[in-house]
Design a protein around this nucleic acid. Structure first.
Lengths: 213, 213
DNA sequence: TAAGGATTGTGAAATAAAGAACAAATGAAT
DNA sequence: ATTCATTTGTTCTTTATTTCACAATCCTTA
């Protein structure tokens, strides 16, 4: 199976490839070479060809890649040909922003329900998504849910994640600035603006010495 | 200089180390071993010791690391001992959420001004930050600004980044789902929820075959 | 249909990162 | 003071990722 051999680094680039191909197809481009594509995504063309090669021969020598075909292939590979249902935990500033953001526009993803502790928010609807009480989280049936988006304060993230886990959710997109301690069968991706900003500042301050090209 | 030898992977872990040390200090812990610390951040203790070793001998054999000392060291290393001024471009749902988020709480970062094209937003204040017209962006003096946070629609991200660049900004935290094409002396970090969510779903669907531990 | 140019797919080499293992040094206990 | 357990800093090994180089193949055009 491809899944056993596809390197992690490759898998993490697939969404970027997919998004870029969506744009190309939308713009009417029917074919593209690995070098042109590499310029678009700012990744070496050899890396791109090797990435694709893990899934077989997706291109044609002397021609390049058919954008529509490649996009459809990645769509399936990334499970974007089916609706991905997620829940959102924590309807604060960031949570509300994510609810207002229409994930369905370019992504087959839907936030089907939200959870919060605030009685003022419970029972309301934010951008078409109903807000439920946090207490219901662990009790609800979530085996149709692929992931939980965590946008709660750091102090409550672990507890919230455990409740979601108890309801059958194994995937977490963690926006809370804390490391989650979850069992092996759970999978967490961490999005941390603070970390990104600090890393950015660090590299900016060190780029003068290292970048001499 | 350390900057020439610190691997990229190490540099990207420093903010996580720093945040975790802040929590330890806040909780009154005065010392910690690399193995205990490793459990907290979920990184192998050898990796942690090696990461620290690039900056010299920060610990004491048979004792571990002094949390306060290590935190202070990372604070300086990450330039968190000085105020980092940033601007925000695009006062939509996400931009507003970031303005409402108090960066100064745990981070020495301040969003000093925001920019938008919407006449209804220009001149208003969001959470204490004034919103200016996008047209003023390129003309303003931004050499005290370390980075721009981009929260505009994908179609306008490149243009907005170029204006910010023209005003003297070299660092970008890009939340727009598009690849920015900027000169060598600019540095971009991309935060893309869609990419993260797709990667998460991919790994979840492949974890059964690969994870057998 | 033949020739030439373009471009992939892939082994092999190079680079980067992570992990194992352990000597050296320190702290703690008696 | 001496012993013993602890834990770092670091060398060496292993693994992962990127890049190079080029044969194989296909497209295009005359």
């Amino acid at each position: 199976m491809a899944s056993q051999t596809v390197p992690q680094a490759t898998a993490e680039r697939l969404p970027l490839y997919y998004r870029t191909l969506q744009q190309l197809v939308a713009n009417g481009k029917t074919r593209i070479s690995s070098s042109k594509f590499g310029e678009l995504v700012q990744i070496d063309s050899t890396t791109i060809r090797k990435d694709f090669s893990y899934f077989g021969a997706l291109g044609r020598k002397g021609y390049g890649y058919d954008t529509q075909y490649l996009m459809d292939f990645l769509k399936k590979t990334l499970y974007q040909d089916e609706l991905n249902r997620v829940i959102l935990i924590g309807v604060g500033h960031l949570g509300t922003a994510l609810l207002n953001h229409n994930f369905l526009k370019n992504n087959n993803t839907q936030i089907v329900r939200a959870y919060d502790v605030d009685p003022k928010k419970i029972g309301t609807e934010v951008s078409g998504t109903k807000v439920f009480a946090m207490d219901e989280l662990a009790a609800n049936d979530h085996h149709e849910i692929v992931a939980a988006i965590l946008t709660v304060p750091a102090a409550h993230a672990q507890e919230a994640a455990e409740k979601a886990l108890a309801s059958g959710i194994r995937g977490f997109l963690n926006f809370s600035p804390t490391t989650l301690n979850l069992p092996e069968n759970a999978y967490v991706r961490h999005v941390d603006m603070t970390v990104e900003l600090q890393a950015l500042i660090y590299f900016l301050n060190h780029s003068m010495e290292t970048k001499n090209s």
